[in-house]
Design a protein around this nucleic acid. Structure first.
Ligand code: ZN
Ligand code: ZN
Ligand code: ZN
Ligand code: ZN
Lengths: 183, 183
DNA sequence: ATTCATTTTGTTATGTTATATCATTTTATT
DNA sequence: AATAAAATGATATAACATAACAAAATGAAT
């Protein structure tokens, strides 16, 4: 609620180009299958092993567009497998994060499926398969969405350039209210 | 190390405008006194009570330009006060963060003194005294520095505007190597 | 097919960060 | 002085994450 106080029109409906949040009625099954198919492709190409456990954890992460805690995933796994210990979940998450298939949201200590893990774009991935990810996180509905913005990328690059700083990793998480939750 | 691959000159020495990190030989005592004086002023103006405990915690946070963990602060307090429990530290940090005198670095789960807590600029503070803060964090020397960049602010505002998102709070933390640590 | 090395998963224990709750003390107000 | 509000003390526990080692599964080479 801090922004745009001097220019309230900036995020008004007229100027809005796109709401990147998933809509309530959307076909989420296709989100999940796209994520799993993309993961298979990414792992196949990069030599990662998407084992049944890792695949299942990815599927559980994708149950919704809301970030999920590691211990929530642990509970879900325990429901279907009996005794499961934290390292089982964390190791799967470590793998998925390393492959760029899942991102950790530092401000929430939670995880979300990568919104850009499609097999097509591999250019911006580093040697370990990860790529910088920027998020909008709605504090009302709990959803988070990975956004790409050239202007933001440019500003970050420019900031690094002018300060002589070499970026290795980025955390950019903007929390507030999504367009739908403002009504 | 991901950025600037296509334009390596961008963060070369010629184009570098300023290194915002504190230099090794700088007069840190003046950093500390400026921070404490500023804190007194901010609290006086906003009606916050900078008690001896809170003031001391702020002083401990300012022992260096490296983010410090809550339990590190706890240990330091225990050294000088005997038995101190976690809530003592967390409550002091909560107060200091609420006043915008300290920031939490989500990606490190650690705290750092605000680099812009001077009494003069109050314009960008929200109703609770906080203001958005963006950080460069050196993974080599461990230092973190709060940076202000109009282009970055603009890009964030623009992103929010075009997506209809109302930002309440920002986490922007860029990790990598500071200019000094690249040599 | 059998051996061997590597990777993945299971298991137990522990480390790290943060909060809930209630008692006591301090401070401000009447 | 009495009262209310704020801050601190104290105890317990919650939530998040990793270390270390054993067992099982996988892949490669003989
Ligand atoms: Zn979906
Ligand atoms: Zn929402
Ligand atoms: Zn200093
Ligand atoms: Zn450095």
């Amino acid at each position: 609620m801090r922004q745009n106080l001097e220019n309230p029109a900036e995020n008004s409906a007229e100027n809005r180009v796109e709401n990147p949040f998933a809509q309530p009625g959307h076909d989420h099954a296709s989100c999940v299958s796209a994520a799993l198919d993309g993961a298979e492709a990414v792992c196949a190409r990069r030599g990662g092993r998407l084992t049944p456990l890792r695949r299942r954890v990815l599927e559980l992460v994708w149950r919704s567009h809301r970030p999920v805690g590691a211990y929530d995933l642990l509970a879900l796994l325990q429901d279907e497998r009996g005794r499961v210990a934290p390292p089982t979940v964390y190791r799967a998450l470590d793998f998925l994060c390393a492959q760029g298939l899942v991102h950790r949201l530092d401000s929430l200590q939670a995880f979300i499926g990568c919104g850009h893990a499609n097999a097509s774009d591999d250019s911006d991935r580093d040697g370990d398969g990860q790529h910088p990810a920027h998020f909008l996180i709605c504090q009302d509905c709990g959803a988070a969405v990975e956004v790409r913005d050239g202007q933001l990328d440019g500003a970050i690059s420019h900031l690094a350039g002018r300060t002589g700083f070499a970026i290795a990793d980025e955390t950019v998480e903007l929390r507030g209210r999504c367009a739908d939750c403002q009504n």
